[in-house]
């Protein structure tokens, strides 16, 4: 594992910790999209089915379990927690997730390496992860004065993807025969989706202003 991959994973881990801390400390999930969190849970469950039949390393196993449990935990907070659930604004979080999930499933059934249940579900998870942030970005755009921690959460999530791009470039240069086209193309699209957000995040940070995305 190279430094970019490790830094990417740690950024991903940190983004989730920031989100959980925000929810727990403020007892509020204002500005957090439940739809995006549900999509991530679906992404993690369909991708990490291999926990049941393949072992890579203790590190991978731990991280996979952490990602599944933490997104489940965020969803639990938003849906079930007595005070946090009251701060969820479902009227703003209206993205139609089936518009994302269905095309991803059709694409996974069409473009995959192997037409088996686990391989199609894995491919589905790669496609879905690329677009799962969209409900969150739309919600941020509707929220005037985005909460600092929510902004940081999305920034760290985007940072994790950018570091994965560097990881792939490093692997291409150092591992002969290394290639994974589905992951590369989806990951590049996923990172590109954050570009606009990065621009406004850095701008607000430099001007010392609260983040607000233009609609």
């Amino acid at each position: 594992m190279n430094i970019f991959r490790f830094a990417g994973d740690m950024t991903h881990l940190l983004s989730i910790i920031v989100l959980l801390l925000k929810i727990n400390a403020t007892k509020s999930c204002a500005g957090v999209s439940l739809k995006t969190q549900e999509l991530y849970l679906l992404v993690f469950v369909t991708r990490y089915l291999d926990l049941l039949y393949s072992y890579i390393s203790l590190y991978n196993t731990f991280m996979k379990l952490f990602f599944i449990c933490s997104s489940g935990c965020v969803i639990w907070y938003i849906r079930e927690h007595k005070t946090v659930s009251q701060t969820y604004d479902s009227a703003q979080d209206t993205f139609r997730v089936l518009f994302l999930a269905c095309p991803c499933m059709i694409l996974a059934l069409t473009v995959n390496h192997d037409f088996t249940v686990t391989e199609v579900l894995w491919t589905f998870s790669i496609y879905l992860e690329a677009v799962a942030i969209l409900p969150q970005l739309v919600l941020l755009q509707r929220t005037k004065n985005v909460d600092t921690l929510t902004g940081n959460y999305v920034f760290l999530l985007g940072g994790y993807r950018a570091l994965y791009l560097l990881n792939w470039i490093y692997r291409i240069l150092t591992e002969p025969g290394y290639r994974q086209w589905i992951v590369w193309i989806s990951g590049t699209i996923q990172t590109a989706i954050y570009c606009d957000f990065f621009y406004y995040y850095i701008k607000s940070w430099r001007n010392n202003e609260r983040l607000s995305l233009p609609s």
């Binding site: 994973d9 991903h12 890579i56 991978n60 390496h113 990881n167 290639r179 086209w181």
Partner: peptide, 10 residues
């Protein structure tokens, strides 16, 4: 055709 990389990333 060469094999795709093993699923060793997260």
């Amino acid at each position: 055709e060469a094999q795709e990389a093993p699923k060793d990333e997260l």
